[in-house]
Design a binder for these strands. Structure first.
Lengths: 150, 150
DNA sequence: CAAATTCCGATTGGTTTAGTAGGATATTAA
DNA sequence: TTAATATCCTACTAAACCAATCGGAATTTG
């Protein structure tokens, strides 16, 4: 029960863009350097965020990416679902009715568990915006930075 | 973000045992037949549930498995964690402090997301007992059975 | 003893994951 | 106009993981 690197790196990319977005387009290279990730691998992920309308790209020299919306309007759930596909702890929770997948078992008694888990995860990630994360991050940054001088 | 078959089958096994547990030891073969699963594969899973104290085994002819506790005292979360390992959407949420894994990123801003997801999943699966599932199942069974005669 | 059953370790085929390789296209700056 | 910097795009690959299978050994009942 793990998120893959796609969702994790995706959130890191968005946070990085939010933190540096005031400085004009941010190149993948600079994100990869800061976050210690493979630039080439990120190249596979960011276009999907672009196609989904979460970031905009500027090609060519001095180009890069910027957020397509305010951090307040970008939810972590969207980032994760774009890169990982729908959040569904088991496949049959994706379907509208549980009929087609569950004829094997006793009327799919266990389905209730997976549906509740699915809804709970989606509720959490859909309740956290990029702005929420940044806000906490800044407070944390200040705290840790000040600790360095104690 | 999926549970593997280990957790899913594990819950199915426990539900099956709860449904038929009054009839003495239940063989894996009968569970595998009812749930349409590979008996040999289940053989890998059930011993782990036994070692964890969730089921008891009776060896030899006419042997099988029975629940080791009342269905009210068996929580789905335990079944899943025994078979899948700790529920942690990313690895670093397993650690007591986020220090050792997160030096790469900007003070691990994103960790907050994964911690909340982890806690939310655990809360859900730890709030559902085997008895809860059985209760819902029986109502559903009755409803569906009656629909067959309409 | 024969059948049924749990128990145990090794192996396998397939899929997924995380990344690499190599280049095409677009833009800027010198 | 040319060199440098970027995004963009399609393949490919090595390693890990998953789901299951295989082949038996040990235990108990009838």
């Amino acid at each position: 029960m793990k998120f893959s690197t796609r969702g994790r790196y995706g959130v890191q990319i968005m946070v990085d863009l939010a933190q540096h977005g005031t400085e004009g387009p941010i190149s993948l290279k600079s994100i990869a350097d800061r976050q210690k990730l493979s630039e080439h691998y990120l190249e596979q992920l960011v276009p999907e965020l672009r196609k989904a309308g979460l970031v905009k790209s500027i090609r060519g020299s001095q180009g890069g990416y910027i957020l397509a919306k305010k951090p307040e309007d970008i939810y972590i759930g969207d980032v994760i679902r774009i890169l990982e596909g729908p959040i569904a702890p088991v496949d049959c929770t994706n379907e509208l009715d549980g009929e087609s997948c569950c004829e094997k078992t006793d009327f799919c008694i266990t389905r209730e568990v997976w549906v509740k888990v699915r809804d709970s995860i989606n509720d959490v990630v859909d309740s956290i915006s990029l702005a929420d994360l940044l806000h906490d991050c800044n407070k944390e940054d200040v705290k840790r930075l000040s600790e360095l001088f104690e």
